[in-house]
Amino acid sequence: MDVFLRDCPTRAVLELIASKWTMLVLVALEDGRPMRFAELRRRLDGVTPKVLTQTLRALEREGLLTRTLYPTVPPRVEYRLTGLGRELGGLIQTLTDWSQANITAIRAARREFDERAEQETEPVRR
């Protein structure tokens, strides 16, 4: 397997993992507690039901989470990470922690870059 090759199947996995909503679902479920769809939707501020459904199905398909349907009225569905999902969730949590620890430096770098870019695009005045 060579992730740099176009046909490498690892690319599809990386594409799924790199999704913002995938990362947030993995972190939300990382503590091992099962969550229902509505609970996940409330936790992931801004996600649409359609995108959450697509994300959950993709994660289930890749073996990263399980979907348990309880035969109640109305039906109750819970989502929980598999062992593989917990392992990946831990890695994503590390990235989340790094992002939170470094957001001040990142914002400062962004401001400096934007200021330089703004100065470079101003016409020269004589």
Rank of each mutant, 00 (worst) to 15 (best):
M1D: 02
M1P: 04
V3G: 06
F4S: 07
F4H: 09
R6A: 05
T10V: 15
L14F: 15
I17K: 09
I17C: 10
W21E: 11
W21K: 05
L24D: 13
L24H: 08
V25R: 01
L26I: 06
A28K: 08
E30R: 04
D31M: 10
G32K: 02
P34V: 12
P34L: 10
M35D: 05
M35Y: 04
F37D: 10
E39G: 11
R42Q: 15
R42E: 15
R42I: 04
L44C: 03
L44F: 02
L44G: 03
L44D: 03
D45E: 10
G46S: 02
V47F: 07
V47H: 08
T48G: 15
T48K: 14
P49E: 14
K50C: 03
K50P: 00
V51H: 07
L52N: 01
Q54F: 09
Q54H: 10
R57G: 11
A58K: 14
E60N: 07
R61F: 14
R61T: 15
G63W: 12
G63P: 14
L64I: 04
T66F: 04
R67F: 02
R67I: 05
T68R: 14
L69T: 11
P74H: 02
P75T: 00
V77P: 01
V77H: 01
E78W: 04
E78Y: 09
E78C: 04
E87Q: 10
L88M: 05
L88D: 00
G89F: 06
I92C: 01
I92T: 00
T94H: 05
T94L: 10
D97H: 06
S99V: 04
Q100V: 12
A101H: 10
N102G: 10
N102K: 08
N102S: 12
I106D: 09
R107M: 09
R107W: 04
A108H: 12
A108W: 12
A109M: 03
E112A: 15
E112W: 05
E115M: 05
R116N: 03
R116G: 00
R116I: 01
Q119S: 10
Q119Y: 01
E120C: 03
E122L: 15
P123K: 01
P123C: 00
R126G: 05
